[in-house]
Design a protein around this nucleic acid. Structure first.
Lengths: 273, 273
DNA sequence: CTTGACTCTATGCTTAGAATAGAGTTTATA
DNA sequence: TATAAACTCTATTCTAAGCATAGAGTCAAG
């Protein structure tokens, strides 16, 4: 009557036969009786209580390991403490997922910027919000070097992101920064690259809000050309360069085996005449 | 110069050597060159771009499987679609975790109710909010039966919860309901058990808000005794029974191998004279 | 007694690598 | 050039929580 075969036990509890065998194997729920000759497992109806508890704790996302540990303790105070700890774990997981969500949305936005961007070489005057960056000085002027040096430089940036415990998820739209003094001399000299970050820290810097002259293009090797285009335009309009020149990689177009394929936006802050 | 050993490649990219070997094994990132004699792997600096993308997508929580699939597609539109799908997945995960969080908090509350509950047999008059339940009629009057029948009954409830696609996490504080007519006759006759639910559905029922006489105790077998205590008290005070009598399992105290150990609260809605 | 339904053990599979052993290779130093 | 240190190789095993499958044995009903 109260001797339940494994299949009956499984049916009564919305669980599979394999699961019950597994629970026995790890010592979480051992059948009341095992037939010595046939090896058949038989459960007692009262063992459902334990199975209920197992399933409940699993619903909360606890591991079978912790569940087993709880059954060793068998104290409701312990359970409360365990729940508290578990809640903290859940909270952490939610935060991780929320960060992923934010990152995914940011990338979608960047794809949108790419899709709606004007043709290469079209100059725009845009109002930009304040942005925060984490920059790294590689000590090499990459304008005199090629793509390989650029790769090595951003390896350095990547390392620094790890060292500073910044979220690696930001390492997807990288920029370079050409300081105001060099821009005013029309010298393309820069050793600094950066990522955008959300939170202010001692290691971060601010790109001020304001009006920027901007231009998009998609060939890494033609940055100076487009940069000069902007500077010529600024001069023609009588705009004054108001700060550092920014070259941002908006998105990386899909990566073919051998090389990067970047969609780039150059931005120069200007003061109107 | 651009020929990077596996260790160098790993160092440049915040990744372990094993990981790179694993990526090769699954065909995600194959070294540029493998020495035929020594079997040493050598990467080209340009392969960092692909590794960056892999790591970025991993940050978003994507599986190596999907990442590989993306590299097969290599279209930014595809990537956008994939991101969209992935965002939906993230959203689902967040919802799952939020449900777990809510359940954990509910259980903590119930433990709190247990800790702060008055002694067994102390009668209280409480104002209760409206509650929503999903009930199941087992067709057997469990007041005439023992714990085994009760167990079988709640197996039926559990099955119905699954059938109705209700969250199994609610199957942790179960109640029984004794209809008003029987209560008024002082007959303990009930075949219905239930769980509390959050959302209204066709299959759910409402326990109205109002004043309830309540009493706590911790012995399953003495429900009628405590129920009668409440009814006697109601009569003595001239309260009228205003609805169905509820017997709620607040928490299950830790499950010993063999039997349940329930902390119970009986509740009768009353109208004041 | 047969048939169908059930159960047994044992193995391999899933993710994304980590850990380890034992052997071979490369690089730097003396 | 010799040697030692650092590096790399393959191969195997391990993680969580079971699912799927094969081939053999067992139970219950007609």
């Amino acid at each position: 009557m109260t001797k339940l075969s494994i299949g009956k036990m499984a049916n009564l509890n919305q669980v599979t036969v394999q699961t019950l065998r597994y629970y026995e194997k790890i010592g979480l729920l051992v059948p009341d009786l095992v037939d010595r000759e046939s090896g058949y497992r038989y459960y007692h109806i009262n063992q459902c209580a334990r199975l209920d508890m197992i399933q409940y704790m699993k619903c909360l996302g606890m591991s079978l390991e912790s569940i087993k540990h709880y059954f060793d303790q068998r104290d409701i105070q312990d359970f409360s403490a365990m729940l508290e700890e578990h809640e903290a774990w859940i909270h952490k997981k939610i935060e991780e997922l929320t960060a992923m969500q934010a990152a995914a949305r940011q990338y979608q936005k960047n794809i949108g910027r790419y899709m709606k961007a004007p043709a290469a070489g079209v100059i725009q005057l845009e109002k930009m919000e304040e942005r925060r960056i984490f920059s790294y000085d590689a000590g090499v002027n990459f304008y005199e070097k090629g793509m390989d040096t650029w790769e090595y430089m951003i390896r350095g940036l990547k390392t620094q992101i790890a060292v500073a415990h910044l979220p690696m998820v930001k390492f997807c739209n990288v920029g370079s920064i050409l300081r105001k003094d060099w821009v005013q001399e029309r010298s393309f000299y820069s050793t600094e690259i950066f990522i955008f970050v959300d939170e202010p820290e001692e290691t971060t810097e601010i790109l001020p809000a304001g009006m920027y002259l901007t231009v998009y293009f998609d060939d890494f090797y033609r940055e100076m050309e487009y940069g000069n285009l902007l500077l010529d335009y600024a001069q023609a309009q009588g705009y004054e360069v108001a700060g550092d020149y920014i070259c941002e990689v908006v998105v990386e177009l899909p990566i073919f085996e051998e090389k990067r394929n970047m969609f780039i936006k150059v931005q120069i802050p200007v003061k109107m005449p």
